[in-house]
Design a protein around this nucleic acid. Structure first.
Length: 574
DNA sequence: GCCGTTTTCGGCCCGACTGTTTTCAGTCG
């Protein structure tokens, strides 16, 4: 989603929530949600549609909603929504965040028991006041208490790498019971964080898979168990859903449960337009319900007149139009990567020796590896003094001459961008390196203007090759630093500074949406791992995942070039 | 509240699972 549209999407969804809680016409909330989805899928800020007067032409947006969007965009607030909010206690909207508690339940709890907050709801459950309501019973009470506990305890989203580890374990555990098995959901789309894991299975004996699944050793609670669908919560807190489907529906199920939801909604609508009906069992002709496709995703996309859409692109960011017009990008692949130039050794804060890192790179089959230890100011990371840096340069030169490794060792550094924007080494020293990654590791809280100036000053140093982990965020721990995307990205494009796609699982920086934004300015990128250990060189797959989610083709990722062209590309600034 | 070469009125994506029902409503994805 275009970040500018997020407040508008929230506004529309909130109207829908409140209308559902207060329970008026049951189709009005649906209309608001549909409009929200449309805005979410827009390729540019909705304010542009407001200024050229085309908002009401968007699908699902009529006169009334167009007027509300217009008012909201112009004033930053909407009288209608504020009145709605005044009509209900503020705590009701938080209740919606509880699992298995939706607008109808919230409305009823408020109408009958005057419950307006999670605390009050918990108390009512403990005092068994819920079971007295029509349609509610003992089990519902227990379930709500569990949801409250889960809501309060869990961080709710997991790092992509953590989800990978769990899902790989589960898939290999279930494989003996399955004829086909694959991970779906946001994990398959390679989102930077994952809320739960979805697994799709075909099997000769479905009951056996279900039993195996719910009996998995790391299961904490079985949330539900049916013939085709079961859910468990693992001891780690992660929820896993398993779906067992017939082989003839495998592709349809995989497509459906891979999502995103927005992608599916567009596909379904489009299917209807073309005389089909699409669900998790297949693509059917509307006329006579005959099956058109379902065994594979490829045949479904093809029946709809589209090219196959890689899961990483299925975010309703224009991929369906692109697939229809045969203009999808040919996404960069893990095998396209020729080397990794963001690696640390035990010269600074890495765990392995320089030779171990090179040897590991050679085993992967890289034609080059770049060593980029920390610069002198990063004392906690044992940053290299200028003298030690010089001796590392000489060591690498000797290593290359020795012919010990087929993989060429490039000599660089991850140089700090100091608070005033200068780099942490003299130009004279920088000039002796093959490349320079410049990163921010201090003073993260600068105001946007000051931070922007800091970065632009750094960019004015002609030895700078790569802007390392540009936003400096750490998922769930540290916010992005503030800088003008427009100024920094356009400067990077103009000065041929490569933007890093850092594949370290807690960084993923730049992430997909910023890659898309930077691409608009014509930036080029480099995928790297920021490895501090030989084992983390495999994190390149996360960098590639972000690049793919960012619509990048091979040509926009510098380290897909072979050694000589890569050297040409990183030497271009000098 | 939106939308229409089958409709300007009467539908809105749709199926699984659960819990509380005795035929269904609510939630989720």
């Amino acid at each position: 989603m275009d970040p500018a549209n997020e407040p508008v999407v929230d506004m529309l969804n909130q109207i829908a929530d409140i209308l559902e809680i207060t329970g008026s016409d049951r189709f009005r909330p649906i209309a608001y949600r549909r409009a929200a989805r449309t805005v979410e899928a827009l390729p540019k800020p909705v304010s542009e549609y407001v200024s050229d007067g085309t908002v009401s032409q968007l699908s699902g947006v009529g006169e009334a909603i167009a007027a509300k969007i217009t008012e909201f965009v112009k004033n930053g607030r909407l009288e209608y929504l504020e009145n709605l909010r005044r009509g209900i206690p503020p705590g009701l909207l938080e209740l919606l965040k509880l699992q298995d508690v939706g607008p109808k339940t919230v409305g009823k709890l408020f109408a009958e028991l005057k419950i307006t907050s999670i605390d009050e709801l918990q108390k009512a459950c403990i005092e068994h006041r819920i079971r007295g309501l029509k349609g509610f019973g003992e089990k519902t009470e227990e379930k709500i208490l569990q949801s409250i506990a889960f809501y309060r305890s869990s961080s709710a989203r997991y790092l992509l790498s953590d989800a990978d580890a769990i899902s790989e374990k589960l898939v290999s555990y279930l494989k003996p019971f399955s004829s086909k098995i694959e991970v779906a959901g946001s994990l398959r789309r390679r989102k930077e964080t994952v809320g739960d894991i979805d697994i799709i299975v075909s099997a000769a004996d479905p009951a056996k898979v279900m039993d195996a699944f719910t009996g998995f050793g790391e299961t904490d609670v079985v949330l539900s168990k049916g013939e085709t669908k079961s859910s468990v919560k693992l001891k780690s807190g992660m929820q896993v859903d398993l779906r067992v489907v017939d082989e003839s529906s495998y592709g349809a199920a995989l497509l459906y449960f891979t999502g995103s939801k927005d992608h599916n909604v567009i596909l379904r609508t489009l299917s209807i337009d073309r005389g089909f009906k699409l669900n998790e069992y297949g693509l059917y002709r509307r006329k006579n319900d005959s099956v058109e496709a379902g065994r594979t995703e490829e045949e479904i996309y093809s029946a709809l007149g589209m090219d196959f859409i890689p899961p990483e692109l299925r975010e309703a960011r224009g991929e369906i139009d692109a697939a229809t017009n045969h203009r999808l990008p040919v996404l960069v692949e893990p095998d396209d990567i020729r080397g990794d130039i963001h690696c640390h050794t035990d010269w600074s804060d890495g765990s392995n020796s320089l030779e171990d890192m090179v040897s590991a790179a050679e085993r992967i089959g890289y034609s080059f590896i770049g060593i980029s230890d920390h610069s002198r100011s990063v004392r906690v990371a044992n940053g290299l003094s200028e003298e030690r840096m010089v001796s590392q340069i000489e060591r690498i030169e000797r290593l290359n001459k020795s012919g010990r490794f087929r993989t060429r060792v490039l000599c660089g550094s991850e140089v700090d961008i100091l608070p005033d924007g200068h780099l942490d080494y003299s130009d004279r020293l920088l000039s002796r390196m093959d490349y320079v990654i410049a990163s921010i590791h201090s003073k993260f809280n600068m105001e946007e203007k000051e931070m922007t100036d800091r970065i632009l000053t750094a960019f004015s140093n002609d030895y700078l090759t790569v802007f390392g982990h540009p936003t400096a965020r750490e998922i769930g721990k540290r916010e992005q630093i503030a800088f003008s995307k427009e100024k920094v990205f356009s400067a990077a494009a103009e000065k041929s500074v490569l933007l890093e796609i850092n594949g370290s699982p807690e960084r993923l920086d730049l992430n997909d949406s910023l890659i898309i934004e930077a691409s608009k300015y014509g930036c080029s990128f480099i995928a790297s791992t920021d490895s501090h250990h030989t084992s983390s060189l495999s994190n390149m797959r996360y960098a590639v995942s972000m690049a793919r989610r960012g619509w990048l083709e091979k040509g926009k990722v510098a380290n897909t070039l072979d050694l000589s062209h890569f050297l040409g590309a990183i030497g271009a600034r000098r």
